[in-house]
């Protein structure tokens, strides 16, 4: 499409573009410019009064930095467990809620969506209390059962698992709502035909519901992967990357590098690498999960 054609298109749809403009301007100001700036500074040594071009030096430092590799390993580990678990829990919960009466559905939708509108910081603080070794709820419960408590967030062997458990046990409200909406659009005739053929309830769920929800699953998997790779507030509130570096994840490393160490160039390089990693995962997910469905 040539420039002239683009301009003609804009002129033809000027009112449409005008209505889109405020949102687009906000996007450019608060997303586009910072992203472009972070790409720019990833090739710079950042100074207060001037920056200096250093080429790929920041990327070389990032690859040589053991902390980056530790953070990458922790992040991938977290994402590979939390994302599938959240999608699966959303699917199961939505499947259990869907057959209920409209009133019951509304109640459960609201109940499971509540954590989504609650600040992640508040949830993380509540879980920090649950994991507290002396007066925490989890250890109190274990002691009630006669077991001994643990320092859940203070031991490398349990800290990351504790954060992962928190992320899994916080209901995936968006996933549940999306799945419920998608289940509502599956034609009832398909289930009726399966019933006539003698399919059991589980067979109908496994052979009809799950495959027909694949586009929603793809959407949730991609969103879940991006969200899991960007895990930050739980780490910031609960462990600050410790003990040792047991819970150091990429976004927390980027935060420390930029706002504690003031190494904005290196933080920019980390960010670009995180972007590339997420892109690779998203590409693989689209390649293997993408499907076009049409109901006849």
């Amino acid at each position: 499409m040539g420039l002239q054609k683009i301009l003609q298109d804009i002129a033809r749809h000027k009112w449409d573009y005008l209505f889109v403009l405020p949102k687009f301007a906000v996007f450019v100001a608060f997303i586009g410019v910072p992203v472009a700036w972070s790409v720019f500074i990833s090739f710079q040594e950042f100074g207060v009064f001037q920056t200096r071009w250093v080429g790929l030096d920041n990327f070389r430092v990032a690859f040589e930095d053991d902390l980056f590799l530790i953070a990458l390993k922790n992040t991938v580990w977290y994402a590979l467990i939390v994302m599938p678990a959240n999608v699966l829990i959303a699917l199961v919960l939505a499947s259990l809620i869907f057959p209920l009466s409209r009133k019951a559905q509304t109640f459960f939708r609201a109940a499971f969506y509540l954590p989504t509108v609650t600040s992640a910081v508040v949830i993380a603080m509540a879980w920090k209390y649950i994991y507290q070794p002396d007066v925490g709820l989890l250890n109190a419960f274990l002691r009630m059962l006669g077991a001994s408590g643990r320092n859940w967030l203070g031991q490398s062997s349990t800290a990351m698992w504790s954060v992962i458990m928190m992320s899994i046990l916080t209901p995936p409200g968006v996933g549940i709502i999306m799945y419920l909406a998608a289940m509502g659009s599956i034609p009832n005739e398909i289930y009726e035909a399966a019933t006539v053929d003698g399919a059991s309830g589980f067979q109908k769920w496994w052979r009809i519901t799950v495959p027909l929800l694949k586009p929603t699953t793809l959407y949730l998997v991609v969103l879940g992967t991006i969200g899991s790779f960007q895990v930050f507030s739980q780490i910031m509130i609960m462990t600050r990357g410790g003990p040792g570096h047991a819970t150091k994840v990429l976004v927390y490393l980027i935060y420390e590098t930029a706002f504690r160490d003031m190494e904005f160039g290196l933080a920019g390089a980390y960010s670009l690498m995180l972007f590339a990693i997420i892109m690779v995962f998203a590409f693989i997910q689209f390649k293997y999960l993408n499907v076009n469905l049409e109901y006849y």
Binding site: Q155, S156, S157, G241, G242, P243, G244, H245, E256, D261
Partner: peptide, 19 residues
């Protein structure tokens, strides 16, 4: 110093974890 302190204290934490 802040980076040095960060790396040192991370290792000290592991001593008191028994790791």
């Amino acid at each position: 110093f802040m980076q040095i302190d960060d790396r040192l204290q991370a290792e000290l934490q592991l001593v008191f974890n028994g790791e």
